[in-house]
Design a protein around this nucleic acid. Structure first.
Lengths: 214, 214
DNA sequence: ATAGTAACTGACTGACCAGTCAGTTAGTAG
DNA sequence: CTACTAACTGACTGGTCAGTCAGTTACTAT
């Protein structure tokens, strides 16, 4: 037996990149459980199986760690949606693809979803998320405009109008996702369907020039 | 001149009820500025022009103070909406009344709105707000069902379906209100119109049995 | 006046926690 | 084997802040 160089099990030494990834993962699960302010870095360190000091070898502050972790998931979400949208035919199939990609993310990355839109807590972080929402809304505005042009219709000339519709679509999806998070028994297809029923129909009628009164 | 009993100006002694109200008001403005965690009770006390110890004569903890303040505004919002809804004819006018009351609140009570849905921060507080959202959604479900019955239509039998539509309506309004908070130049009527265009049309078509595909 | 009580305060404490530092340990190049 | 470096740690600190306490001040009833 050569009992030399024996490291504690589970305390394997890792390369910087591996350790960084492990810390990000621990951060995700810790923050998802308790929110930003309620989670101490000691708790994150413990979950990652390292000392708190090591966290500072990889991230220069609590906020930086949080933001790096958040950004990772934001990036994934954006990639998934924009990939799905880009690969679909214009019009209805495109919207369906986007909606499905979105709810797919929510389904698979439950923890990530919670962090992204339910725990912000910190003002700066909330700001970053607001920007994300606005980007998504802007993308929707873009698609709706193309759509309208394709059909030879024109939207109400009021420039804020389309923006307001897009903001509502984003809010509706987000709210539905939150609800779903607490009602997981409902299968994804039904959720997607409800989203399409509500948002697509509303949007489509509006783009045909129909308004609520008269 | 009778320079006796002279209190420092602005440090007037008040009855318990007056002081309580003053503290709640200071709390609203302080919390609205910086969020729950970022606001210290010393800051609230200073804004109210009293010592921190006095806060504890009226509220037994920071959270209790926050919740009391929140509850006050939640109550006002609920009253305004339910009052407006109750006083309107069923169907479209009813929804319009509700939407108008809602955006009226957002317009007049800007600070309150921000506190309520933008800087919860604390998990318990977020829970209270979730419950509010669910109550509102439940009320919408109720109205939609009555509406459907009145018209002799029936909604998709799937019980979760109506719930999902209602959740989306709530989310859409909330999101639009947030957007409006940053784009105040847009007049209320246009915001209300956009909300009605999106949500009413979507809801109405669905209640006529129309679905997005086929 | 005087006693009683309700409003109010300054000064304190104990816990928590982000962030630091002076090291130790384990791979790895020569 | 040795020197070098990169991964890693325990123990500490300084600041913040919710919550407390031992009072003081002003109003009110008798």
């Amino acid at each position: 037996m050569s009992p030399v160089t024996q490291t504690k099990p589970g305390r394997a030494r890792m390369s910087a990149a591996e350790r960084r990834a492990a810390i990000l993962d621990a951060a995700r699960s810790a923050f998802a459980d308790s929110g930003y302010h309620e989670t101490s870095l000691d708790a994150v360190a413990e979950r990652a199986g390292v000392s708190k000091a090591l966290l500072y070898e990889h991230f220069s502050s609590k906020r930086e760690l949080y933001v790096a972790m958040l950004e990772m998931h934001v990036h994934e979400l954006v990639e998934r949606i924009s990939g799905a949208v880009a690969g679909a035919e214009p019009g209805e199939p495109r919207m369906l693809a986007g909606v499905e990609a979105f709810f797919g993310f929510v389904e698979e990355r439950r923890g990530a979803w919670r962090i992204m839109f339910r725990n912000a807590g910190d003002p700066d972080v909330a700001l970053r998320l607001d920007r994300l929402r606005d980007e998504v809304a802007a993308a929707i505005v873009q698609l709706m405009s193309e759509e309208a042009e394709r059909k030879g219709l024109d939207f109400p000339n009021l420039p804020e109008f389309v923006e307001m519709i897009a903001q509502q679509m984003v809010g509706a999806m987000q709210s539905l996702a939150d609800w779903w998070d607490l009602h997981r028994k409902v299968p994804k297809e039904q959720v997607v369907e409800a989203a399409m029923d509500f948002a697509w129909i509303g949007q489509e009628r509006i783009s045909q020039g129909q308004r609520w009164s008269r």
